[in-house]
C-alpha cells in the first residue's frame, strides 16, 4: 500500500502534475465558458430566426463529425502550437449540444405561457428573459453537461500539440513507455471528469427542481 502511494507521489512530482492539473482545468474552463456563451447565443439566434435553424444546426453537426485529433491538427497552422488549437477545438465541438438544447428548450416552452406573457404586457425581449429562458434552463443545463464531457476529452488530447495539461503527462508516458505515469495520469484525468460531471449533474438536478417541475 505504502509502495503504491510512494509511486503515485513520485510520478506526481516528477511530472509536475499539480501544475499540469491547473493548466488542464484552465483550458477546460475557458473552453466550457466560451462554448456555453456562444452556444446559448446561437441557440437564441436560431430560435428567433427559425429559418436559419436547420442550416446552422447542420453546419455544427458537420463540425461534430470531424475526428477531434484531425480538428486540432487543422487548427494548428492558424492558431500555432500551445493551448489555442485545443481550446478552439473544444469550443467547436461543444457548441452543438449547448446550441441545440437551448433551441429545443426555447421551442418547447408551452404556448400558453408566452401567450399570457404577451397578454399582460411583456415585450418580446422581456418574454424571452423572464419566461422563455428561465423555463428552458433545465434543458440548457443538460446541454452544458454534455459540453463539459466533450471539453474534458478534447483538452486531454491537447497533450499531443504541446498544449500542456494532463494530456502532456500521458503523451510523455507513452513516448517513454512509463507505465506508472500513464496509469496515474489516466486515472486522475478520468477521476476529474467524473467529479466535474457529477457536480454538473447536481446543478442540473437543482435546476430541474427549481424550473422543470410543473
Amino acid at each position: 500500500m505504502t509502495i503504491v502511494l510512494q509511486t503515485v507521489i513520485d510520478v506526481w512530482d516528477k511530472n509536475l502534475m499539480t501544475l499540469r492539473t491547473i493548466e488542464h482545468l484552465q483550458m477546460f474552463s475557458i473552453a466550457l465558458v466560451l462554448s456555453t456563451v456562444i452556444g446559448v447565443i446561437i441557440g437564441i439566434f436560431i430560435y428567433s430566426r427559425q429559418r436559419t435553424a436547420n442550416t446552422v444546426l447542420n453546419i455544427l453537426n458537420i463540425v461534430e463529425t470531424i475526428p477531434d485529433l484531425a480538428l486540432i491538427v487543422i487548427l494548428l497552422p492558424i492558431l500555432r502550437l500551445g493551448a489555442g488549437p485545443t481550446i478552439a477545438a473544444s469550443v467547436l465541438y461543444s457548441i452543438l449540444p449547448v446550441a441545440r438544447n437551448t433551441y429545443t428548450g426555447l421551442k418547447g416552452v408551452d404556448e400558453q405561457y408566452t401567450y399570457v406573457a404577451r397578454a399582460i404586457g411583456l415585450s418580446q425581449v422581456e418574454t424571452l428573459w423572464k419566461v422563455k429562458i428561465p423555463m428552458s434552463l433545465p434543458l440548457i443545463a443538460g446541454g452544458i453537461r454534455i459540453a463539459l464531457v466533450f471539453c474534458m476529452g478534447v483538452v486531454t488530447l491537447g497533450g499531443l500539440v504541446a498544449a500542456g495539461g494532463l494530456g502532456t503527462v500521458l503523451q510523455n508516458g507513452i513516448q517513454l513507455y512509463e507505465k506508472d505515469a500513464i496509469l496515474v495520469a489516466g486515472l486522475w484525468t478520468g477521476l476529474l471528469a467524473v467529479i466535474l460531471d457529477s457536480f454538473a449533474g447536481i446543478v442540473e438536478k437543482k435546476l430541474h427542481e427549481r424550473y422543470g417541475k410543473w
Binding site: Q112, V116, A119, I120, G121, P134, M135, Y211, K213, W214
Partner: peptide
C-alpha cells in the same frame, strides 16, 4: 403599453410555474 393599462384573466390562468 396598451396591455399594461388593462388587466387580463383567462380560463387556464397561466401563472408562470418558475
Amino acid at each position: 403599453r396598451l396591455r399594461r393599462n388593462m388587466g387580463y384573466v383567462i380560463q387556464n390562468i397561466g401563472l408562470f410555474p418558475h
